[in-house]
């Protein structure tokens, strides 16, 4: 089966900095792919690059094949037709992503208008249905409210309703729950999963929270300093991490099953995008690193069924997991 979206060698340069470098991944139909990484790892930039939403001075290389066409090279008018209709985005902070001076209703109907040609009363009826579907009570009245009249969770629901107005095939979710309270985070994730089933769509979920990925995603790609370090099915990556960075991330999450386990975290800070280390970008912070790590950037290689790693010491790491566990 052909993947729905196939990203190959995506690189982003902003001035002298290269915050994203040769990133490749696939998204299959009806699949939820998690992209995990610390802030600044380039995961949000990657998402925005797919719809040509980067600031004008940013440059991209590589390809992102969608329905046989390259999203990164599409002319402005074509990519505009893809945005919202085939591939939609939701942002981290609904308070700033919704236009503060326009009603929620208008912000939904303008999407319906441009993609489905719905106008006037028909658009309003559809907008009410959409708000209903994302679980906003009293949707008809809420249509005329402004974003600031909604609570945080409601705003995120409204943003999802707007993004899904034209029933896209792929949703790019950029840290959709980070700005929310924990209890509401869970509701929003459940909603996303539900909508993914109902609409048969695929989702790329960008987050820094491993727990969220474990609970929702089918596959995961771990990003660090602009590169993919490891990718594979969620169960396989979490059961047998094959990269020192993934291991470090997992050890910095408290695990109720191992209450007495030491929380170790990762020492040091990520490199500046303008001063990336040669070779493996994680090597300077890595406990497993050898001089070989700093020679050349290690390519992704198979280390299990559909499981890839960019670590040359994957076997040692897996061994150490077995020893400590």
């Amino acid at each position: 089966m052909n993947p729905l979206l196939s990203v190959r060698g995506l690189g982003i340069s902003i001035g002298p900095a290269n915050p994203v470098d040769s990133v490749s991944f696939d998204v299959n139909a009806s699949e939820m792919l998690g992209i995990v990484g610390e802030s600044g790892s380039g995961k949000s930039l990657t998402l925005r690059a797919l719809l040509q939403l980067l600031p004008p001075h940013a440059r991209t290389t590589g390809t992102a094949t969608w329905q046989g066409r390259d999203l990164l090279a599409m002319p402005a008018d074509d990519i505009r037709r893809v945005r919202g209709r085939e591939v939609a985005v939701i942002y981290q902070e609904p308070m700033t992503a919704l236009d503060p001076v326009l009603t929620i209703g208008l912000q939904i109907t303008e999407s319906l208008n441009v993609h489905l040609g719905l106008r006037g009363a028909a658009a309003r009826v559809r907008a009410v249905q959409l708000l209903d579907r994302v679980g906003i009570p009293d949707a008809k009245r809420r249509l005329d409210n402004y974003p600031h009249e909604f609570s945080g969770g409601m705003r995120q629901r409204a943003m999802i309703a707007i993004a899904l107005a034209a029933e896209p095939k792929l949703l790019l979710a950029d840290e959709p729950t980070t700005a929310l309270d924990v209890t509401i985070q869970d509701q929003i994730l459940k909603l996303l999963l539900q909508l993914k089933e109902d609409l048969h769509m695929s989702v790329i979920l960008v987050t820094h929270d491993l727990g969220i990925v474990a609970g929702t995603c089918d596959r995961v790609a771990v990003m660090y300093a602009g590169r993919i370090m490891e990718s594979g099915p969620v169960y396989s990556v979490f059961r047998a991490p094959a990269h020192a960075y993934t291991l470090g991330l997992m050890r910095s999450v408290p695990n109720p099953a191992h209450a007495r386990q030491l929380l170790s975290g990762i020492s040091g800070t990520p490199p500046e995008p303008s001063h990336m280390p040669p070779g493996c970008r994680f090597a300077p912070r890595c406990g497993f690193a050898t001089p070989q790590c700093s020679e050349a950037p290690p390519p992704l290689r198979e280390c299990g069924p559909a499981h890839q790693t960019a670590c040359i010491h994957a076997d040692r790491i897996r061994q150490s997991v077995r020893v400590t566990a």
Binding site: R48, L51, L53, R80, R81, V82, R83, G84, R85, A88, V89, Y91, A97, L98, D99, E110, S111, V114, H115, M159, I162, A163, A165, A166
Partner: peptide
Amino acid sequence: SFATAKGL
């Protein structure tokens, strides 16, 4: 940016 992402 979000308005652009909607395909307007």
